[in-house]
Design a protein around this nucleic acid. Structure first.
Length: 823
RNA sequence: GGGCGAGUGGCGGAAUGGCAGACGCAAGGGACUUAAAAUCCCUCGGCCCAUAAAGUCGUGAGAGUUCGAGUCUCUCCUCGCCCACCA
């Protein structure tokens, strides 16, 4: 047998698969369709082995499904707009387009060298105008429906980088790149009205049966639905009513003051003629301008100021003071909070600081509360006290009763609030899809007509940050004509968040070439929802939520017939090195190229899959790679065993029986591991055991103990089983075994349940739950006979001496436990 | 503060409530070799002990359910991730 020359083998098969179009799909052929999708990557300079995990897992699934007879669509593309390219451009003076295209070609080469196959004819890159034309079209569709709108909003501003930051670039209230504290700046911004879909996005999580529970929970928390009551508080001496939202209406009798957010729109009117107006305005200014980090850095440190006004708590009839404080957020609820210091820790802290009164209205059933001696708010449910007609009720009952009372007396209304905010999609950046909007002095905000798409991103632009959108300084881009009146007009200079690009790419793969529509409705309806989506858990919230939203919007407009894009989701864990995420700055990046050169792609794939359960993080070990390499060689050299076995010989029946049994068990195990939770690590270890089994049979019973025929049949099955994991060597082995077509066009092996079973079984025998011996008996032995054999066993008998047996627990063919006491 | 995970040998990790540590890495010993690499074989949780056998302890800690618990229940500790002054 030849040596295992992985370089030659891998080159050869990669070329042949390409020529044969192994993963080329005709979308019109929808029989047995299977859409296997991996999250498309951002084109960074080079991939490391951590990135590889995603593609290798996906490739295993695609190849496995292919062998199961499915028509597998596995496309790939690039999420090519975005900040890193722009930042690199600022730093190195290379145009983002050039660096991005260069990175894409590097990545494609790396993916090829891993043996990961895609239908490359469907490749998309979000920075190409033939793609973003349709991202812009989606924007226009949302605009048409009133789902895209512009409003003033605070954006994250890094004063050091002189630029706007996306939320995800703000880490611990500081700039992700330079660690400077992020400020809030008030700018006109485009939003998508995702909040209109909050309830549906929440409800439909129920449809996502095959998503990880963890991801579903994260989405639920992010949407954050809470039920409560909007309560009106009249401001004493005015006709103004302030409305606050609460989920704890049961505590309303304990509301001893009220607090507004500093951004609350009615503040100006309320303090207009007050004596402390200037002091209050100063306070508000401070809260607004101070960066978030100082404002909320230490939770518990709350600052506020009295407005001089009082509001009426209509449940108690009492006048309570109205305050402004930095711990109330304008973005959530109504920006006004009824403060119940006895039953809310934040209100408690604030009340203690400013010596505001505290009233217990929910008593702790275990230990009565004392307003004076409380050291913390009592936030648990309890029994109502000091609450008029509602005294004695349990919190839960009181919530309903009080809400009903408020509704029938016009004090408040039941209401639902979400934490989810509208999606801010404007970026004051260059490297993104331009927002297709034109501003005309006469006609106002005018959408670019569909026929004028794409609005092309100009190539020559000064994109060094000035604090304004770089496109402002591209006159050829900026200056245009109004599509409505033909007069002079200016283009929108902001670009779109890259999450917009990635929220629909899975549709484009179906119809990559067409330029008169974003996608073909029939084809998309035939192929989607995606059967299996695979990607990192870091996208659990934003990308997946946005994709679900856009899908629903497009579905509502009638372009597609489904409203959830991904049927089944798998989120793989990160690969870390020395306990940390791989990154260039930490210097712990493991590059695949040199490993592939040294051991071959199959080895790197095998180790990546063997490293641990794929949904969990795993620590990379270069020594572990060596082990994977050894296994492949060990498998390869089974061919030598075949050469050495006696030609035409019958072999040793006992050895043969053992190997056959093991073989069927392995087929069962590998199949179940792949189809279940993608536990490739245990699937691979099962094959390792089978290969070890062959070697030990030969060791124990001699070189000719396994007939050539048997070895060949075992090898054939091993080859099929490992094909998705180590495709090149498997294809080579398959050919050597006489395979006429590709192993990936061959049928996945089936096991014979009859042959899984050995003739005899070894039964562990316990005494009082502790293992005391084992007996080897024939399979399917009756309980009486088993009891007899065990009682007669010398070793067991020692333990049963002087013992009164109370009970025999017998699991036929599996285990026996004798329960007894010493007499 | 809230949510979700996870704690098993020197390490990565296995184990439908039924033999804890599969498989692999590392380590030690041996065979082959002039030598090395590669390969093959053996040992490999702790204690007791002479290497054994037999015994005994052992899955973060403690309790519970059970004939039987790494696995189920409760309490606690530690670590990781996500969210976080969300009313």
């Amino acid at each position: 047998m030849d040596n295992y020359n992985f370089t030659e083998i891998e080159k050869k098969w990669q070329k042949k698969w390409k020529e044969a179009g192994l993963f080329t799909v005709d979308v019109k052929d929808i029989k047995n369709k299977y859409y296997c999708l991996m999250m498309f990557p951002y084109p960074s300079a080079a991939l490391h082995v951590g990135h590889g995990r995603n593609y290798i897992i996906g490739d295993v699934v695609a190849r496995y499904m292919k062998m199961k007879g499915y028509n597998v669509l596995s496309p790939m593309g690039f999420d090519a707009f975005g900040l890193p390219a722009e930042n690199a451009a600022i730093k190195n003076g290379v145009h983002p387009e050039d660096s991005t295209m260069k990175n894409i070609s590097t990545m494609k080469r790396q993916l090829d060298s891993w043996g990961v196959l895609y239908d490359w004819a469907r490749e998309v890159a979000s920075c190409k105008s033939e793609y973003y034309k349709w991202t812009q079209w989606i924007f226009l569709k949302l605009f048409e429906k009133g789902l895209a709108y512009k409003k003033k909003a605070f954006v994250n501003w890094c004063p050091s980088c002189n630029t706007v930051l996306a939320n995800e670039q703000v880490v611990d209230d500081s700039c992700e790149r330079c660690d400077t504290a992020v400020e809030q700046k008030d700018l006109e911004q485009w939003f998508f009205r995702i909040t209109d879909y909050a309830q549906r996005l929440l409800d439909d999580i129920g449809k996502l049966g095959d998503w990880p529970e963890k991801v579903k929970t994260m989405q639920r928390n992010w949407i954050g639905r809470s039920e409560g009551v909007n309560i009106d508080f009249p401001v004493d001496g005015t006709d103004i009513k302030l409305t606050c939202f609460t989920t704890r209406v049961d505590t309303v009798f304990g509301c001893t003051y009220m607090v507004l957010a500093a951004e609350h729109p009615l503040i100006d009117k309320l303090v207009e003629n007050g004596p402390d107006k200037l002091k209050i305005m100063d306070f508000i200014k401070e809260v607004r301008t101070i960066s978030k980090i100082e404002r909320g850095g230490a939770v518990g440190d709350k600052n506020g100021i009295f407005t001089g006004r009082y509001v009426i708590n209509r449940m108690t009839g009492k006048k309570i003071p109205l305050w402004i404080a930095d711990y109330v957020l304008m973005e959530y609820g109504t920006g006004a909070v009824m403060a119940v210091p006895a039953h809310d820790q934040r209100d408690f802290d604030f009340a203690r600081k400013y010596e505001l009164p505290l009233e217990v209205v929910i008593d702790n059933p275990k230990e009565s509360l004392n307003a004076g001696s409380m050291t913390a708010a009592y936030e648990d449910p309890g029994i109502l006290v000091n609450s008029g007609d509602f005294n004695g009720l349990l919190s839960d009952t009181a919530k309903t009763k009080i809400a009903e009372y408020m509704e029938s007396n016009g004090i408040g209304r039941r209401s639902v609030h979400f934490r989810l905010r509208d999606w801010l999609i404007s970026r004051q950046r260059y490297w993104g899809a331009p927002i297709p909007i034109i501003y005309c002095g006469k006609c106002g905000t005018v959408p670019v007509p569909e026929k004028d798409l794409p609005v092309k991103l100009p190539k020559v632009v000064e994109f060094r940050p000035t604090g304004e959108s770089p496109l402002k300084y591209a006159p050829d881009f900026m200056d245009t004509r109004c599509p409505a009146c033909g007069g002079k007009a200016a283009r929108e200079i902001d670009t779109m968040d890259t999450f917009v690009d990635s929220s629909w790419y899975f549709l484009r793969y179906i119809s990559p070439g067409i330029d008169d529509r974003a996608f073909d409705t029939d084809d998309v309806n035939n192929w989607l929802p995606v059967d299996q989506y695979i990607g990192g858990v870091e996208h659990a919230i934003l990308h997946l939520l946005y994709s679900r939203f856009i899908t629903k919007v497009i579905a509502d407009m009638g372009y597609i017939a489904f409203d959830e894009p991904f049927k089944r989701l798998f989120t793989q864990g990160m690969i870390v090195k020395d306990g940390a995420k791989m990154s260039k700055s930490k210097g712990n990046v493991v590059a695949p190229d040199s490993l592939i050169e040294r051991y071959g792609a199959d080895t790197v794939r095998l180790y990546t899959l063997f490293i641990g359960p794929p949904e969990k993080d795993a620590e990379w070990s270069d020594q572990g790679v060596e082990g994977a390499y050894r296994f492949i060689k060990r498998m390869w050299y089974v061919f030598d065993l075949m050469d050495n076995s006696a030609p035409g010989g019958e072999g040793n029946p006992k050895a043969g029986k053992e190997v056959i049994c093991k073989m069927h068990a392995t087929i069962k195990k590998v199949t179940e591991d792949i189809e279940g939770e993608f536990h490739f690590n245990t699937a691979i270890s099962a094959v390792m055991e089978l290969v070890n089994g062959i070697y030990s049979a030969v060791n124990e019973y001699g070189a000719d103990s396994l007939s050539e025929k048997l070895l060949e049949s075992v090898m054939r099955n091993i080859t099929l089983l490992v094909a998705p994991f180590v495709p090149h060597v498997a294809e080579e082995m398959w050919q050597k075994l006489g395979g006429k077509v590709s192993v990936f066009k061959s049928e996945w092996p089936a096991y014979d349940p009859e042959l899984l079973l050995t003739d005899t079984v070894e039964i562990p025998v316990q005494f009082n739950g502790k293992l005391r011996g084992k007996v080897e008996v024939e399979r399917g032995l009756g309980e009486d006979r088993l009891r007899e054999i065990i009682s007669g066993d010398e070793k067991i008998a020692l333990w049963l001496k002087g013992v009164k047996i109370k009970k025999w627990v017998i699991l036929p063919d599996k285990l026996v436990n004798i329960v007894g006491v010493n007499e």
